[in-house]
Amino acid sequence: MWLLTSIFDQRLTEISVIVGILGAISALPIFKSIGNWSQRRRKHKADRLTEAIAKATRPLIESYHREHQEIMDKLADQDETSISLLHDRVYIDGQKMLDKGETSIDEIDNFIHLYQRYRKLGGNGTGEAMNRRVMDLPLKHETNTLVQEADRIHKEREEK
Rank of each mutant, 00 (worst) to 15 (best):
L85C: 05
V90T: 02
M72H: 10
H113M: 09
K100D: 14
R89S: 08
H113L: 03
Q69R: 13
N124L: 06
R117Q: 06
L60I: 15
L86C: 05
Y115E: 05
T103D: 09
Q95R: 09
A76T: 07
G127T: 09
I105Y: 00
G101L: 04
M72V: 14
Q116T: 10
D88K: 12
S82N: 12
T126S: 12
I105E: 11
T126Q: 04
L86T: 01
Q78G: 04
L121D: 02
G122L: 06
I108C: 03
G123H: 07
E67D: 07
N110L: 10
R66T: 06
D79C: 06
L85K: 03
G122A: 14
D73F: 00
D99C: 03
S84N: 11
E80H: 09
P59T: 13
N110W: 04
R89D: 04
L98S: 00
E67S: 15
I71C: 10
S84T: 13
L60T: 15
I108A: 07
P59C: 15
D93V: 01
L60R: 11
D109F: 02
N110Y: 05
E62S: 12
S82Q: 06
E107R: 03
E80F: 03
H65R: 15
H65I: 15
S82Y: 06
D77R: 13
D99A: 09
L86S: 12
R117D: 01
R119C: 09
P59H: 15
S104H: 01
R66N: 09
Y115H: 05
I83G: 00
S82E: 11
D79L: 08
N110P: 00
L75R: 12
H113N: 12
I71P: 06
Y118T: 03
I92K: 13
S82D: 13
K96W: 00
